[in-house]
Amino acid sequence: MTNRLANKIALVTGATSGIGLATAKLFASEGAKVYITGRRKDVLDKAVAEIGHGAVGVQADSARNEDLDNLFAKVKSEQGRLDVLFVNAGGGAMLPLGQITEEHFDDTFDRNVKAVVFTVQKALPLLGQGSSVILTSSVTGIEGNANFSIYSASKAAVRNLARSWILDLKGTGIRVNVVSPGPIHTAGLVELAGDDKVQQQGLLDYLASTVPLGRVGEPEEIGKAVLFLATEESSFVNGAELFVDGGKAQI
């Protein structure tokens, strides 16, 4: 590797699997001191071991402000600053209009919007000139999606937060950008089809058919895009949405 993040302090939320884990591995291999979060300690400890390079795991639910306070207090006491913040924690389930519940709505927006807002806001005292904040949105934020309207709306909100925050942060030297993955082969995606392996493969095959490249993406491919937004290579990129979707949302 090229040590593009040498001497940088990075935090990846929701990094025990999928895109978050792949990105944390890449950050660490590029020289960053990496902190990661996850809600389950056993899975978090496994991810830390997998990342290596002195990675630090902090058990936290990003939708709980007290957990975020503990997280940033730890980073502050141990490092005193934060150079790269990848706000990746989130998720959602499928429900069609007519079956949407208040619980479903609150859970989705708490995980995908509230958590993003307060993660970034509580990180601000540790961020400074040259810091990079990357938010995870989705192609669903600009597409119509049957049975997925609440999740899609939450991801559209994430994209607009970045547009507004670069105005709030004008003059600070802090950049905020968005990465919007298309269908990516992660546990969270295949689990939308339930536990049946045949149905899971059917979902992957269907999604691949909607992508001009003819396949679903891999978590490492999103990690490479996030790495670009984290480094000086993207020093004049601010408020942008980078689609990593095989062309799915571009047609």
Rank of each mutant, 00 (worst) to 15 (best):
I174L: 04
A193D: 08
D69A: 15
T172I: 10
G247V: 01
K74N: 12
A6C: 03
K46M: 10
K25I: 13
L204G: 02
K8I: 03
L5F: 05
A156Y: 11
V116H: 03
A73H: 10
F236I: 04
S164I: 02
N65S: 15
K224Q: 14
L95C: 02
R159T: 15
G239M: 10
G18I: 04
L229R: 01
K224Y: 10
D61H: 15
Q201H: 14
Q121I: 00
E218R: 11
V43L: 07
V179Q: 02
L68W: 05
P219D: 09
A22L: 07
K224C: 01
Q79K: 13
Y151N: 14
L82F: 07
H185C: 00
L167M: 12
S164V: 10
A115C: 10
L124C: 05
F118V: 03
S164R: 08
I166S: 13
E50I: 15
V190M: 06
G20Q: 03
D110A: 14
A156W: 07
G239R: 09
R215N: 03
G92W: 00
L189Y: 05
G14W: 00
D42S: 13
G246M: 04
D107L: 11
A153G: 15
T231G: 09
K74E: 13
T140W: 02
E233T: 10
V178Q: 06
T23S: 13
A162P: 15
Q250K: 12
M1P: 07
A187Q: 06
I166A: 14
V87D: 09
Y35W: 09
L21Q: 03
G130K: 00
G14L: 00
S137K: 04
D69I: 13
L26D: 05
L95D: 05
L21V: 09
A208R: 04
V116Y: 04
G92C: 05
L97E: 13
P212C: 08
L11V: 00
L213V: 13
